[in-house]
Design a protein around this nucleic acid. Structure first.
Length: 449
RNA sequence: GAGGUUGUAGCUCAGUUGGUUAGAGCAUCGGAUUGUGGUUCCGAGGGCCGUGGGUUCAAGUCCCAUCUACCUCCCCA
């Protein structure tokens, strides 16, 4: 028999990992609830037509397609099959695909249920998504996303709210972060001032790489994308502006850029000084081209953790017309996502998970003979009835062996039961680290703890 | 999708210019010490050397393909 294995880019989770992941998700979820967001779920599979064309050419390639059931080859055009043209055959043999993110299914959800929900509709969603990407460390083909969005309002209050959600979650987790904010309209203003309005997307993609490839790299990238060196230099010069006031002066007479500035100002007005984690960053771009207003990105604080190399651990922004592709116009939305897998890795590396997430049982009963074993089981039953998690070693074997098991499971208390305890209706309770145990009479279940 | 590195016991790894029956530590199981937590001592099981081809008298070792993990692009969480 061959050894079992897992599909590429997928993982099992051990109990200790599940405990930590559950902790992480529950902290995030608690904050979402506090801000009045409601949980929804969507199916693992969507119609392929819902998914294709929403993530660009690259995204379509990374979509997992699900083979049709039944005799799926019988209706395929034999000519296409002979050509071995996969891209033309796929629509005929696959009508469904695995969800690639949570945002597009959410847009579909809003359109389909627009009469069942109240706008502004605030929802969150914590589910797996699948991408046929080449796996690397911290990048998987199956992973969780935690999205929180509000649709049906263009109030900038929600931008401020989402910033506060970010801050609240990471404070609870004990992780120091920088929340970066920019605005797509500011980036457009940049292109306008530099005279490359028609190259807006190319410019954005290049700028996005600034902290990775540096100024010269960005200039080169822009030139590769048919932006002149002069224009590229102009963009770089504008990127050096760090204060909002100076930027406002540079944008004088440019409507779109000025509007972006005002939006950023308004968000900051809402927040006051509640979130020192927030910083304006004109070079923040984010690739996704459906963003139209404020954009956000969260990074672990590199000053607090200089050794950490992890990049973005969350991001999002405002999109004015997400549901448009599904036929519902003029519904504005804004949302952010938590990169749970990466947050997990960062927390692990920084040792930020509380020690007690790993604790499972409070007490382990160990018995030294058959009669004591029955007695221990009875006592364990009583403890369980009052909600104390405990376990009984399955047989009254050598104490050393049972103690080793308690040790391996990190049990804080061991209840030892032998003949004398049984006859006195007591257990000898031993706390981890104490040299000797004391005998306690067990009158009320749970009174010992 | 392009380029690169890698794979030996459950885990971490040795394994010589290709040369008899592939080793160690940890873990597991059994035994000794017979009522107090990572100790000690003795012993045992456990391997299609990732998979499939090839070269050779002979392959864990050399060549090709493939899969996996990891790295750089691309893209992203």
């Amino acid at each position: 028999m061959s050894k079992p294995s897992l599909p590429k880019g997928t993982r099992d989770f051990l109990p200790v990992q599940v405990a930590k992941r559950t902790y992480l998700f529950s902290v995030i979820e608690e904050v979402f609830k506090t801000f009045g967001y409601l949980r929804i779920e969507t199916p693992t599979m969507e119609n392929l037509s819902t998914l294709t064309g929403k993530y660009g050419e690259e995204g379509d390639r990374l979509l997992f397609k699900v083979l049709n059931n039944g005799d799926f080859l019988s209706d395929v055009d034999p000519g296409l099959l002979n050509e071995k043209n996969s891209s033309k055959v796929i629509p005929q043999i696959s009508k469904r695909g695995l969800r690639y993110d949570l945002t597009v299914p959410f847009a579909r959800f809003v359109v389909m249920h627009q009469n069942d929900i109240q706008f502004p509709f605030k929802r969150y969603q914590i589910q797996q998504v699948w991408r046929a990407d080449r796996p690397q460390k911290g990048r998987y083909q199956e992973f969780y996303q935690c999205d929180v969005d509000v649709v049906g309002s263009d109030s900038l209050m929600y931008e401020a709210e989402l910033v506060q959600i970010y801050a609240a979650v990471f404070r609870k987790l004990g992780l120091k972060v920088k929340i970066l904010m920019n605005n797509r309209k500011i980036l457009f203003g940049l292109a306008e001032v530099a005279g490359i309005k028609d190259k807006f997307m190319d410019m954005t993609i290049a700028i996005d790489k600034l902290d990775k490839i540096g100024k010269d790299g960005v200039i080169k990238e822009m030139i590769d994308r048919e932006i002149t060196a002069e224009q590229a230099e102009k963009v770089i010069a504008l990127l050096q502006i760090t204060s909002i006031q100076d930027l406002e002066i540079a944008f004088e007479g440019f409507e779109e850029g000025s509007k972006g500035i005002e939006e950023v100002r308004q968000v900051i007005r809402y927040l006051g000084d509640s979130t020192p984690e927030l910083a304006f960053d004109i070079s923040l771009a984010r690739g996704l081209n459906y963003y139209t207003g404020c954009i956000f990105e969260v990074k672990a604080d590199s000053e607090a953790y200089p050794k950490l190399t992890m990049g973005s651990i969350g991001g999002g922004g405002r999109y004015d017309n997400l549901t448009g592709v599904f036929g519902l116009k003029d519904v504005s939305g804004v949302g952010v996502s938590f990169g749970a897998e990466r947050i997990y890795d960062v927390m692990e590396e920084l040792n930020l998970f509380p020690a007690d997430v790993q604790k499972d049982i409070d007490v382990l009963f160990i018995a030294l003979d058959e009669a004591a074993h029955l007695f221990a089981f009875e006592k364990a039953t009583q403890l369980r009835q009052v909600g104390i998690a405990c376990d009984v070693y399955p047989e009254p074997t050598k104490m050393k062996k049972q103690m080793s098991y308690a040790n391996a499971r990190n049990v804080p208390y061991v209840a030892i039961v032998g003949e004398s305890e049984r006859l006195e209706n007591k257990v000898s309770l031993k706390k981890y680290g104490d040299r000797h145990a004391g005998k306690f009479k067990h009158r009320q279940p749970g009174c010992l703890f």
